[in-house]
Design a protein around this nucleic acid. Sequence first.
DNA 1: TCAATAAGTCAGGAAAACATGACCACCAAA
DNA 2: TTTGGTGGTCATGTTTTCCTGACTTATTGA
Lengths: 103, 103
Amino acid sequence: MTTKNNTEKDINCPAEGLLKSLSGKWKAQIFRLALNGPVRFSSLLRDLEGSNKQSLSVALKEMEEQGLLDKIIVKEKPLHIEYNLSGKGKSLVAVFQQLELIK
Amino acid sequence: MTTKNNTEKDINCPAEGLLKSLSGKWKAQIFRLALNGPVRFSSLLRDLEGSNKQSLSVALKEMEEQGLLDKIIVKEKPLHIEYNLSGKGKSLVAVFQQLELIK
DNA sequence: TCAATAAGTCAGGAAAACATGACCACCAAA
DNA sequence: TTTGGTGGTCATGTTTTCCTGACTTATTGA
């Protein structure tokens, strides 16, 4: 149940999976903030007005599963968790930049 | 009410609008079919298994509003309506091709 | 030891998206 | 003049997604 719908549709349209992986109320914004450096659960909760723990938790988990974010446990001083844009995530940046030109 | 959510979010993230414009159960598939030439309401209904009038109607309307599809009334022989990929729609193709490479 | 911060989970409800079936208007062929 | 195709709308119901509030575990600074 980690990844679910690898149905016929994904075969028909490879882009659909990626598209789905960024649909949802908070994912694009999380992605955007992650561009500026590692993001953290609690700071996202603060920065994304109107967001909530549950939704962010789910979004982060899914983005991690889809390989867009890397979750790393920082064992230093205040011991916390960071989410970083993965290689795959970074490769999406170019796509988004193209997208922004279209408007 | 033709275009609705030009809220702060769109200002923060120009790509989000486009992203949203292709989220939804049928839009990617409609887009895909529209690549091969004009699509029609009734043929979409036939070709997209599991689809229904209501959902297609809404999807087509939104894609039209977002400027991805052009709705044209063909006044010839059987008098029908065609949906064609607009210029903006076509410029998205390159983006999708890039997207497919990421997988 | 107490309170705070960080990062969550869980049950439940509200809201949004999607599907169903009935219906409608227009046109054309039989 | 009724049957069939095309392109829908509308009311309603189901399903999915999202939000809320209560609770949890671990770490840490006072």
